[in-house]
Structures are given as structure tokens and as C-alpha cells.
Write a protein that binds this DNA or RNA. Structure first.
Lengths: 151, 151
DNA sequence: GAAATAACAATTGTGCACAATTAAATTTCC
DNA sequence: GGAAATTTAATTGTGCACAATTGTTATTTC
């Protein structure tokens, strides 16, 4: 039985944009890991902290919209952040369906220790801020195109 | 007690390249999902199939090197692909530590049904192949820089 | 104002992703 | 030739990520 030829260039791994995004995301997470270990955060937890440092007291829903994550991901993650002492979860009194997430003193204080993280990531990324900014814009455009296509 | 100002632009979510990569990766996975559901594959399983379609009979180790994944991820994933009937896992006779992964007839046949996937992804991505190719190259350069920095 | 509907968080179940450990086989070095 | 080091896959445990469901609370509709 002759082996079939598999020669569609579109199905070669090295031609897949998606694998480039996927493997770069993992490389970035691995780069963040030692930096975030020092803050006792995982990368998704760090994203939640970034959101809360911009605006404290957001609901789970609002955090999820900002990060494109749902409650199935956020609820246990936020409970771990609460256990770590960085946030407080409080059901809203005016609408008992919602849960507001507030930073604790410790969570506020963590901001000061986070300043060095973006610098180190920039450095590990090669340090060309202009190129990286353009890359970010291109990615966001792709992301928004994909999200618009799948509505 | 006055609320502290959190105004380091480097710590704004919207300025983070990493979040752009992270959220684009998720958007891509979501775009793939309905296409891959039809093939009874998840996205990481699809990546493994791409690798095997290029070269059948690879070891777990070699697949992991290609995809930047370790055996803790691949072993259960490959067992699920075996249950689905797409691959066969066989311990090498010359070196019993290694496990070779071979496509089944069904796994070979799946290739024919996969041709439409990259086309549909390209279409959902906006269809500008030239821009997407440049984006891919920029991402791979970033990934390789990060991997080189963290050795 | 009661019933239907919608909004929201939590829960459950499946499948990655990776660190750390284990176990087995092979290679290296003396 | 045999002890020690190395290689390899599997296992275990933690933490996302998301679909589907559940239960509660608000809101809308009649």
C-alpha cells in the first residue's frame, strides 16, 4: 500500500500563523513565570490584578469582559487571589447577583513591586519598543477581526 | 485614607503586548473550534496531527520538541487521539524508553478533510495573506528571542 | 402585581499546560 | 564488566479555559 502524499503547503505547521501565536504565547508565559513567582501570581492572575489596579471594585462580569474570560475561569482564580490575600469578594447589596472584587491593602501594595515586570519583559523581548508596539497593533487588529467574524 | 494613584503606563492592560498575544491566541482557538469539532479534534490535537502528517512515526519527544510541549501534556493527549482511532502508540523495540506514534488509516484519511481548515481561518482572519505572513514572521522572531533569553 | 424572561455567579466536567517526581532503559566512564 | 549518569515516557498535582447546567435575583411583560 503506497503512502499517500501530504503536500498541501497550507497544512504545514511552519506555515501556520496560528501556531506562531500559540507558541509565542507560551514562550511569553514562560518568560513571565520567574518574575511573577516572586509576586506569588500566575500570569492570568497578574492580568486580573492589572485590571483591578486600573479600576478597583469591578464585578466578575466586567473583569471577564475586559480579559475575554468567563466566570468558570474567573471564579476559582479569584478565590485563589482571595486566599493569597490580594482581593476581597463581596456580593453587591443593591443587586445580589453581582460580586464586586476589591483590592486589599496587600493587593494595592503589590502594585509597587510590579513596576519592574514590564521592563524585564521588554528586555527579554529584544528591547525594540517601536517594533513591539507595531506587532501589538497588528495582533489586536487580527483579534478583533476574528471576534467580529465569530459573532 | 487616600486612594493611591496607579498611573505607570507600562502597567496598563492595553499597553501590554503580552495580553495582545494571549487574547489573540484565545480568539484563534475559538475560531478553530467549530471547524475542528467537525473533525473530532481539539486545537492542540490538530497541531499533533499536522506534525504527524508531515512525518509519521515520530517519538513523543520529537513531537514535543516540534510543538514546544512536554510529555505531561502529550501523553494524555495522545491517548485521547488513540481512543479516537487516529493514532497508534507503540514502544520502540530497539529502545524501550521511546514510544513511536503512528497514524492509523483513519488518521491518514483525516488529512483530506482538513484542507478546508486553513482556508476558513485565513478568511476569518481578514484574508490579507501578505500582512498575516509578516505578522507570523514577527511573532516567530519574538518567540525565538524569548526562548533564547530564557535558556 | 404575578408570571415569564433575563442576568449573573457558581458549579461540573473535559482537556490542555507545566513542574516535579518516578521508573525503566540505555549510555558513559572507570 | 559494572556502577553512575543520562535519557525517556509516564504519573501526580496545580491552575487555567470553556461549554453546559444550576440556582438565585432582577427586570420585563402582561
Amino acid at each position: 500500500m503506497p503512502k499517500r502524499n501530504h503536500d498541501d503547503p497550507a497544512l504545514k505547521l511552519d506555515n501556520q500563523l496560528c501556531f506562531a501565536v500559540y507558541s509565542t504565547a507560551h514562550a511569553l508565559t514562560r518568560t513571565y513565570k520567574p518574575l511573577l513567582d516572586a509576586l506569588n501570581l500566575t500570569y492570568p492572575q497578574y492580568l486580573v490584578m492589572l485590571v483591578l489596579w486600573e479600576r478597583d471594585g469591578m464585578t466578575v462580569k466586567a473583569i471577564g469582559q475586559r480579559l475575554h474570560l468567563d466566570s468558570g475561569t474567573l471564579t476559582p482564580l479569584l478565590k485563589r487571589l482571595e486566599t493569597a490575600g490580594y482581593v476581597r469578594r463581596q456580593r453587591a447589596s443593591d443587586d445580589e447577583r453581582q460580586v464586586n472584587i476589591h483590592l486589599t491593602e496587600q493587593g494595592q501594595a503589590l502594585y509597587e513591586r510590579a513596576h519592574s515586570v514590564p521592563q524585564e519583559i521588554l528586555s527579554a523581548s529584544g528591547g525594540n519598543a517601536r517594533n513591539l508596539l507595531a506587532l501589538k497593533q497588528n495582533l489586536l487588529q487580527l483579534r478583533d477581526t476574528l471576534n467580529a467574524a465569530g459573532d
